[in-house]
Simulated scan of single mutants.
Amino acid sequence: MTVKVKICGVRTPAILDAAAGAGADYVGLMFFPKSPRNVGLDEAAALAAAARGRVRTVAVMVDPDGALVDAVVEQVRPDVLQFHGSETPERVAAIKARTGLAVIKAIHVGEAADVARADAYEAVDHILYDAKAKPGAPLPGGNGVAFDWSVLAGARAPFALSGGLAPDNVAEAVRQTGAAMVDVSSGVETAPGVKDADLVTQFIAAARGAAPIKAKAS
Rank of each mutant, 00 (worst) to 15 (best):
V80M: 09
V182G: 00
R37D: 07
K96D: 01
P78K: 04
A206W: 02
Y129D: 08
K6D: 01
W149G: 00
P64L: 08
A51C: 03
A112F: 02
K6W: 10
G85N: 10
A112G: 14
V109L: 02
A146P: 04
D65S: 07
A146L: 02
P78N: 03
L16P: 09
F32D: 00
D17A: 15
G154F: 00
G141R: 14
A19C: 09
V62E: 11
K96C: 00
V72L: 03
A71Y: 04
E74L: 11
A180M: 11
G66L: 14
D148E: 15
A44P: 06
V10A: 03
T99H: 02
V170H: 10
A180R: 13
A67S: 14
G23K: 12
G142R: 11
A155C: 09
G9K: 06
A94C: 07
A120T: 11
A123T: 12
L152C: 10
V62L: 03
A215E: 14
G28L: 01
L152V: 10
T57Q: 07
G193V: 07
P167H: 01
D79E: 13
P167R: 12
P158A: 03
Q176C: 13
E172V: 13
L139W: 13
G21D: 00
D148R: 15
Y26G: 11
R56P: 02
Y26M: 05
V60F: 01
E111M: 13
I15Q: 12
F31G: 00
D114N: 10
